[in-house]
Design a protein around this nucleic acid. Structure first.
Lengths: 229, 229
DNA sequence: GACGCTATCTATAAAGG
DNA sequence: TCCTTTATAGATAGCGT
């Protein structure tokens, strides 16, 4: 690709060599990138000039690419062994153990694999489960109480609004003596929230009653639950 | 540089892409070698096809070259040296996530971090905990029942042995009319184990009553914690 | 035959002396 | 920059699995 063909051997003339290096280096890196892009390949190029300068191209992270290179089957076990660095494999096995531990604990908490356990271990589990259960029940009761409170507030608000509106209407229509609207007392306000989460009277009662010794709800309205209408 | 100019973007046609890959790969490796020879440079090229095949060129030993790359001031030594293994780091992060999941589940089962949960989630936990608790209690009851049964057996066995011995002694000593031993009926057999784990009659009764369908004890008395006084 | 890859041929774009 | 030499797109054929 030039005026005349050259032999592929070290260029003696230093200047010419440097010029050629510069041109061909750029060409090589460009071709590398083209190959990577055109063919969806991972390509890495590292070039050291005779003077020690470094040039590189990598289609993805050089780190990853060299990692891939090292664990490729072509490369002998020694190299692969090198890449398995100590810290990482330690970390891996540590995490593996931890995972196993947690799996065991979880399955025991679910009530599986209990048969090898001593009485002490069973009682530890019992305490844990009872503690967890009471926390869960308390939190659930709090949530239900909160929902009820907010529903009640909403209900009262709506009723007030209703009454106000009705009074206004009565005033407006008192001249012709008509009274086509019902009073607030006749409205049925059920304690159901807008989603499919329905709080039946039954379950609410049960749950609230089961909250023995839990801290009482703060801005407490729970006792008045379901006393609307 | 061909019949027609192409855009440098991924070639969609798979066959065309493979052909181009094959051609350009050779071209790139050839250019790399030429650069190394002509300009007295150290050049390394690593190519992974989209299908995972690897191709490489290195003007000197690839290992040495990569070593040089690692040592180059541009790269801090650790980057390349440390975590080169993609699979390993993926595994690590996967395990990390799993650990976090299990930690969360465990802490929720212990009753922590419950405040962001919906009613459904709380009820899931409740069910899990209740199920686990009932399993644990059942297992504990079984163990206690087993211990009691084996203790009773041992006790009876010992008493029989005692009686036998006493009879023998009585026979032996009947001549001089002495009788220095108490009868079995006067011995006090309390159901208390040597540790601080006391099984009150009360709790035993309760647990044993709730023990429906436990497996009968083996003939084994070895792990018996309780001692006859 | 299908698939994945390489080889061959030709015209032309790009490299580089 | 010039302009020859190379590389390679596109099409298709070959080849081992």
């Amino acid at each position: 690709m030039a005026r005349e063909k050259i032999k592929i051997r070290r260029i003696d003339n230093i200047t010419a060599r440097q010029v050629t290096f510069s041109k061909r280096r750029r060409g090589l890196l460009k071709k590398a990138e083209e190959l990577a892009v055109l063919c969806d390949a991972d390509v890495a190029v590292v070039i050291f000039s005779a003077t020690g300068k470094m040039f590189e191209y990598s289609s993805s992270s050089m780190k990853e690419l060299l990692g891939k290179y090292k664990l490729h089957p072509n490369n002998n076990v020694e190299k692969v062994g090198e890449s398995l660095n100590l810290q990482e494999s330690e970390e891996l096995s540590r995490m593996g153990k931890e995972l196993l531990d947690k799996d065991l604990e979880l399955s025991q908490l679910r009530g599986e694999d209990l048969h090898g356990l001593t009485l002490e271990e069973l009682e530890r589990l019992e305490t844990l489960l009872e503690g967890g259960l009471s926390h869960v029940l308390r939190t659930k009761d709090e949530q239900i109480a909160n929902q009820i409170t907010s529903l009640q507030q909403k209900g009262f608000q709506l009723m007030e609004e209703n009454n106000l509106l009705k009074q206004q209407m009565m005033t407006l229509t008192s001249s012709n003596g008509k009274r086509p609207w019902s009073t607030a007392a006749e409205l049925d306000i059920s304690v159901t929230n807008p989603d499919d989460q329905v709080l039946s009277t039954d379950s609410v009662t049960t749950h609230v009653c089961s909250c023995n010794g839990g801290s009482p709800p703060e801005d407490d309205c729970s006792d008045t639950a379901l006393k609307l209408a």
